[in-house]
Write a protein that binds this DNA or RNA. Structure first.
Length: 874
RNA sequence: GGACGGUUAGCUCAACUGGUUAGAGCGUCCGGUUUACAUCCGGGAGGUUACAGGUUCGAGUCCUGUACCGUCCACCA
């Protein structure tokens, strides 16, 4: 066995084995189930650090569930990612052939995208496999699979029939680049530096009187249909009911009206009303039955209504209008002004509120979704996300679900060619197909992914009837918080509405929601492609191994916190794996490893073996650690669990127990074997490759580790069965502390030869003698020498067993008395504080027995130490 | 503008419902060719827990306010 292991070989070997044995396919056995839906990455996606974190967490949970004897379904898939994929292929098309999608035509273009999808769609799956994820690839689903598409469309039809989906002409968020409507969630508000421009409208009835208007969007002036002031504004009261003259079309006059929505203190207190291009104006326009004049076209250019600026881009027109107003003497002032502007999430350009006819969805089951919190049917990790979830549900607007794209699920609606106001909502066209035309638009990508749990489990389909019943609801959803509203909350609403004839707890798609933080770089910036600050996970896997990357990532990822990525963590992860490898290697060098098939079998063997207190101490700690581990994982505290395992393994097992084994080996290897066995099991979810390999080497013939079973020993019975009394336990803890103290004392001294002098406490003398020889070996000193007087000028440490001294070998300045005095003074302080506490009646009556006992013990120890140090004073 | 989260060692983070002298890892420095492991072992230094008040026998933890950072939500043009 080599000192280090070859990562790549191990990974290839076990990936092949797992695949060949169909190890991760969901089985239809009688075991209880555990389900996770993997958030489907974009089909065009490439593995990034966020995926690494996210999927490692899911994989730990799945492998842990398998160890617990559950039948696991971890369901992967990919998302067709409508806008982003279409835009990507359009760009390629433009670059390679100089063609637009319209020149190519719908059918050809879609074939082109599909071809691209087939070439690139598998990449992310292959990358995920390299990370060691254990999902059921046989059930991988793609949102545009024919079956899945059909499900999406039939849900549209179903929700239409239930009255949740309707068609409406409204002001929607319009992306002038992608030329499609967007949902509220796809618009990102960004603070933007703009200009607040004030200009004057001439009042028709009162020549020489002007109404000043402040706006950030002068280019929409040609679409103004009224001016509005607040009904109670005394400044403008006399103007209400009169008319104003349009600056660029003097023939046209518009009314001056009063409306509550106008803010008196902002700008001039008067508002120009452009109902076709502004949400507030839209509402005011409807209230006052004003006409709607559109001046911008789909690409964001001024149309024929916007003369004389027709043909200009909106940004160009903005400047031109200001100049024109200035020439006419109507411009009052321009001020720099920072305000929030909505940007299209994908194209990253300002969106345009645009009047258009779209399909909308009124969200179903909103109240029920809120109640899930009170009814404890949904738990967020970390819990504070509950408030954000609730807030979103409280402020829901109808969802614009139609997109003017080609790549996606086509809306299942047919319009009569001779009269498009007549339409037919159904999966199939009416029988006289030739007279009908299908809606050209597709559905928002998220309209397909919100059905993910039902769609992937073939809800209400005959083909696989048990699948849904068996695996729904899932147990936990692990995702980045960025898609809480896009996806997670909507899945809840969809499932509540569409899963029928079941009690509430059976209609929730998942009971636990684990929201991971964002992976940031060392400077705290979000990792992103454009910044180029994200390492390629495959390079990292190459260098540190999948196990090293997984352990490293999770050891810096506290629950729900953003994580500051640091490659040093991966180094530590890899080093830990090497340490594990070597500890197992060391054991194998000692002789054949025992092979029992369960914890209980080992324990039986242990019961019939005579064990040293040190062996029992290890077992005792092992049982405690197993309990904590299980508790941690049940609360999704993956970070705490791995850190505790690492500390326990290194500090307790390697540095204390194994070191002792070198000098005073146990009578039997059974303790060490059980320990390593349980360690491999507990580490397996985190580091699947190396643990599998070690398991095979050490426990050949008892199956693979991923088939092993977790057994939680019962503290009460298993620990009591050990012959370790509480007194023995105390002794062991003293010895372990003593080892640390002696290591500290002798750390700076050369070993050959080194004598440690002891001023022993008489009452602990016998106890010390038992371990004296072992300690000499462990601390690597030539001998302990018992003295009856303190050694002046030596380094010293006060312990439970007495004061230990090391004489400086070379003449050094004698131990500084001031240092000693400082120590004594500090102890005095501690002692006084403790004494005060213990004589304080309120403390004694309020504090718990455990706390009081702790203070007493500490006081006692400090007094002892104080006395010992006092003796050293000259 | 509203809400939420954060601020603890040079860096990244712990510390359960308030309770013993606030702990790890990394970094740094010192010392180590010990019958697994230098991808290792031992050790040192390093903290007024952002700031100001308050409640309490006792506050990193609870309350109030301030500052800074981050996130989400929001139609003052």
């Amino acid at each position: 066995m080599e000192k280090t292991y070859t990562l790549a070989d191990l990974q290839t070997k076990w990936n092949r084995r797992w695949e060949e044995s169909h190890a991760f396919e969901a089985k239809s056995d009688a075991k209880p189930t555990f389900t996770i839906f993997m958030p489907p990455p974009n089909v065009t996606g490439i593995l990034h650090m966020g995926h690494v974190l996210n999927n490692t967490i899911q994989d730990v949970l799945c492998r842990w569930a398998r160890l617990q004897g559950k039948s696991v379904l971890w369901l992967p898939g990919t998302d067709h990612a409508g806008i982003s994929t279409q835009v990507k292929v359009e760009k390629i098309l433009k670059a390679e052939k100089g063609l637009t999608r319209h020149q190519l035509g719908r059918e050809t273009f879609l074939q082109r995208v599909e071809k691209w999808r087939q070439e690139h769609g598998q990449v992310i799956f292959e990358q995920l496999k390299r990370l060691g994820v254990s999902c059921d690839w046989s059930r991988a689903t793609y949102t545009l699979d024919p079956d899945y598409s059909r499900r999406v469309q039939s849900v549209f039809v179903k929700l239409y029939k239930r009255g949740y989906i309707y068609k409406g002409k409204r002001l929607v968020h319009w992306c002038p680049v992608s030329q499609t409507a967007l949902s509220d969630e796809e618009v990102i508000m960004k603070p933007t530096q703009g200009v607040l421009c004030t200009f004057r409208y001439a009042v028709v009835e009162k020549p020489g009187t002007f109404l000043p208007i402040a706006t950030t969007r002068p280019e929409t002036i040609m679409g103004d249909v009224a001016l509005a002031v607040h009904p109670k504004d005394p400044r403008y009261a006399s103007l209400v009911g009169l008319h104003a003259r349009c600056p660029f079309d003097p023939q046209r006059t518009i009314p001056i009206i009063a409306d509550q929505a106008v803010e008196m203190d902002f700008g001039t207190g008067a508002l120009k009303i452009t109902p076709a291009h502004d949400p507030i104006d839209f509402e005011i326009g409807k209230r006052h039955q004003l006409p709607f004049i559109e001046v911008l076209d789909a690409t964001g250019r001024i149309n024929e209504n916007g003369a004389p600026f027709t043909g200009m881009d909106r940004m160009e027109a903005r400047k031109a209008v200001i100049e024109a107003l200035r020439e006419k003497g109507l411009l009052v002032k321009e001020e720099p002004y920072e305000h929030a502007v909505g940007y299209s999430e994908r194209a990253n350009v300002p969106i345009e509120p645009r009047l258009s006819e779209q399909w909308f969805l009124r969200y179903p089951k909103v109240e029920e979704a809120k109640q899930l919190l009170e009814k404890k049917q949904v738990h967020f990790y970390p819990a504070h996300w509950e408030k954000i979830y609730r807030h979103w549900l409280n402020h829901l607007q109808d969802w614009c679900i139609s997109r003017q794209l080609w790549w996606g699920h086509r809306i299942p609606v047919w319009y009569r060619k001779d009269d498009p106001s007549k339409y037919h909502v159904s999966l199939e066209a009416p029988s006289d197909r030739e007279n009908w035309e299908q809606d050209p638009d597709v559905l928002d990508t998220w309209f397909s992914s919100w059905l993910w749990p039902m769609g992937t489990l073939h809800y209400q389909e005959n083909s696989d009837k048990n699948l849904f019943d068996r695996y729904f609801p899932s147990h936990v959803l692990v995702s980045g918080s960025d898609i809480l509203f896009f996806w997670i909350t909507r899945m809840i609403l969809a499932s509540l509405e569409l899963v029928e004839d079941r009690p509430l707890q059976q209609r929730v798609p998942f009971h636990n929601i684990y929201l991971t933080g964002i992976v940031r770089d060392a400077k705290g910036r979000k990792m992103s492609k454009s910044l180029g600050n994200s390492p390629d996970p495959l390079d990292l896997i190459q260098t540190y191994g999948a196990d090293g990357v997984r352990v490293g990532m999770l050891s810096i990822a506290p629950q729900g916190h953003d994580i500051c990525f640091d490659e040093h963590a991966l180094v530590a992860g890899r080093n830990f794996c090497t340490k594990l490898w070597n500890a197992c290697r060391f054991r194998q060098m000692q002789g054949r490893v025992g092979n029992y098939s369960s914890f209980e079998d080992y324990w039986k063997e242990i019961a019939s073996t005579s064990l040293s207190p040190i062996d029992q101490y290890l077992l005792h700690s092992l049982v405690l650690t197993m309990g904590t581990y299980e508790k941690r994982l049940s609360q999704y505290e993956l970070n705490a669990a791995i850190k505790e395992l690492q500390a326990f393994f290194r500090n307790f097992f390697c540095d204390f127990y194994l070191e002792i084994q070198k000098y005073q080996p146990s009578s039997s290897f059974v303790v060490q074997d059980l320990f390593l066995r349980q360690m491999l099991i507990m580490l397996h979810p985190y580091a699947p490759y190396i643990t599998e390999e070690l398991w095979e080497q050490m426990h050949a013939g008892s199956g693979t580790l991923q088939e092993a079973q977790w057994e939680l020993p019962k503290l009460s019975s298993h620990v009591q069965a050990l012959a370790l009394s509480s007194k023995d336990l105390e002794v062991m803890e003293h010895i372990r502390t003593l080892v640390d103290q002696l290591r500290t004392l002798t750390a700076k001294h050369s070993r050959t030869p080194l004598t440690v002098h002891i001023l022993l406490e008489s009452k602990h003398q016998a106890e010390f003698k038992v371990y004296q020889a072992l300690l000499e070996q462990l601390i690597k000193i030539s001998s302990f020498q018992i003295v009856s007087q303190p050694l002046p000028g030596a380094s010293q440490v006060v312990t439970h067993y007495g004061t230990f001294f090391v004489q400086h070998e070379i003449t050094q300045p004698a131990m500084d008395d001031t240092q000693l005095m400082q120590q004594i003074a500090a102890l005095k302080q501690y002692i006084q504080t403790a004494e005060q506490k213990l004589s304080n009646e309120k403390f004694m009556s309020h504090a718990s027995a455990k706390v009081i006992e702790g203070v007493q013990k500490q006081l006692e120890a400090n007094r002892k130490k104080w006395e010992a140090l006092q003796k050293l004073l000259p």
